[in-house]
Every structure is written in C-alpha cells, then in structure tokens.
Design a protein around this nucleic acid. Structure first.
Lengths: 172, 172
DNA sequence: ACCAAGTAGTTAGCTTCCTAATTATCTTGC
DNA sequence: GCAAGATAATTAGGAAGCTAACTACTTGGT
C-alpha cells in the first residue's frame, strides 16, 4: 500500500541518489528526496490553491485575510494582520487595496493610534465568505479525502515538524 | 509524542471548527485543518526555499532548472524543461534569460528542429552547482532531520497522495 | 506539392509576494 | 518639553509564476 505506484512524481529517488553521488557527498538520498519533494509539493499545492480561490474572485492571500478578519470579529489593524498571516506589512497593504477596491473590506483610521488604521470586514465581504463556504470547505475536504483520520493526524504532526525544520533552510 | 506542542501553528483546530460551525456546514474540521495547514505550509516552505537559494544567487526555479539540466547531461530543449519542471514554457524562457545573463547556461539553435533551441549548462553553471552542493544538500538534510527514516517514508507517501488530492482543489 | 493545423519559443501584461525607503505619528530619556 | 529613536502604513521597484497572443517553423491530409 505504501508502494510508490505514482510514476509521475517529479523528482525521483534515482535523481536524488545520482546527485548526491555525483558530488561525492555522504548525504542521505532519502532525506534529500523528502526535502526536494516537499519544496516541489509546496509550489504545486500553492498553485492549486491559487486556482481554487480564483474561482471566487480572490487569491489565497486575500481569502486568508478575509477569513482571519471574520474569525477575529471583523476588525483588525494591518500590522496585526501581517503578524497573524505571516506576511509582510507591505503585502497586507496590497491585499487590503484589492479587497477595498472590491468593497469587501473598508479602512478606517484607528481611534487609539494616529498612525494606525483598522481594516473592517464589510457586509459584502462577509457575504462573499458565506457564498463560497459550502464549495470551499467541500473542496478542502475532498483534497485530503484520500487520507484516513489516523493518517491525517500523522500527516499534521509530520507537516508541523517539517515546517519547523524548513526554518533551517533559510536560517543562519 | 504526537502532542501538539507547537503553539505557533498558524491556523488552529479551534479556528477550523469555529468556521465550519459558523456556516452551519457538516465538514470535518480536522480535514479542513489539514488542508488549510497544507496550503499555509506550502507557502512557508516555498519562501524558505526561496531564501535558501538566494544565498547562492539563484531562485528555486533557476536552481531546479540548472539541476535538471545537469542530471540530463547538460542539454535540454526549453519545452522539455517546462514539461519536466512542471512550469509553463513562458516561465522557462524567463528562467533561461536570467541564467544566460549570468553565464550559467547558453542557448543554441536546435540541429533537428528549426523552431527549437537547446539550453546548455556552461562550465560556470556546473561550477555553481558544485560550489553550492555541500551546503545545499546539508541544509536539505537538516530540514527533514527531525524525522526518522520510517517517518520520512510515511511522509513521502502521504505527501504524494495529498498532492494528488490537491488537483481536486482546482479541478472541474 | 500545398495549405491547414499544430508546436517551439518569445513577448506582453497580470498577480503575488518580497525588501528598502518614505512619511507620519508615538514614546522615551534627558 | 523636546529631540531621538521606534513603529504604522504606504510607495517604489524587483522576481517568479501565469495566460494569451504573436512569429517562425514543421507536419499531415488531400
């Protein structure tokens, strides 16, 4: 069951082995393969998500912002959004620009801080989330539908650990 | 051992549960969480990889192209590169432009096909790969170093199945 | 042999994200 | 109480990916 069987998986164990050998390194080809596949999978899933959100006139970033806003009561400062979504403040500015243009959020100056502002989910923004919910969650569910409940738990755990490890890629 | 313990995982099970409830849907919050975390993890890993390759003056796409070229004997047509790397031909044109500007690849018209051309790994390109190999593979290894050999095999299997499932996101 | 349709590569224009620099405001330390 | 430094948001500019449209060549049907 754990047999490979795929056939079209982009980087193969063979390629990984060949590369490691080629440079005379003692790295574990399996570990390298996992890392490379993960990077590749990240890009593919990201693109699939982008296409998914595009069906609703949103991007991954815009949807995440909208959903985060609603989950937080409909109001949040751009800085907090940036921190919570783990993107830069400049990116949040861009996402808000697009969402504001479509009337899904509104900006209001902050009452407490003269420098700051607050992003507010509009009725139209909330409606958009409501409209897409059934299909959105349905598709998300079918995305992982091939995994059993236990497998999902395992995957969640492994994924978290690998994401933590990915910090090592960029770190120093 | 499978305990959460993370604390900073971006979307939580609570959030997923709240959202599903909020819309009165019967989706499984755990499945939704897995999907959402995967999308989020994909973006994070992608950015980490981008930062990693930037240390060597490359991007993820450029590195993948260079590595694929070397693995294939140093010569390949842009179309095949696009197919093998799973990006569009236009993207390959852009990657080749950048790599050619830095002298890491060269372009030559195809002998067999008057429309086609061939990308060739230059000595300098091969050298670049050689220079970065020890650190590159070392970092890749440490990225998944938190996983045992068995866990890596499981992860590889689950990852492949979930990537296949991600097609369902965009499909239809 | 020739015209139609397909394919290779590029170009143009879009989006997302980034970093760095700018402007305005807040907060501290003296 | 005011100058110096931090912080909020924006702007400007860059890279990677996409699709669609264009050019040049090849191939296949009649």
């Amino acid at each position: 069951m754990t047999k490979d069987g795929a056939g079209d998986e982009t980087p193969t164990l063979e390629q990984a082995r060949r590369q490691v050998e080629h440079y005379g390194l003692d790295a574990d080809p399996q570990a390298v393969l996992v890392a490379v596949r993960l990077i590749s999978a990240g890009a593919r899933v990201g693109r699939a998500a982008e296409a998914h959100f595009a069906r609703f006139g949103l991007s991954t970033g815009r949807y995440r912002l909208l959903a985060d806003l609603e989950d937080h009561g409909g109001e949040k400062s751009p800085s907090r959004l940036a921190a919570d979504l783990e993107v830069s403040r400049a990116t949040v500015t861009g996402l808000l620009d697009g969402l504001e243009r479509e009337g899904l959020i509104a900006r209001r100056p902050s009452a407490e801080d003269g420098r700051g502002s607050v992003a507010i989910l509009t009725a139209r923004g909330a409606q958009r989330l409501r409209d897409m919910a059934p299909e959105h969650f349905g598709r998300l569910e079918s995305m992982v539908g091939g995994l059993s409940v236990e497998e999902r738990a395992v995957f969640l755990d492994l994924l978290a650990r690998v994401v933590r490890g990915s910090a090592a890629l960029a770190a120093d």
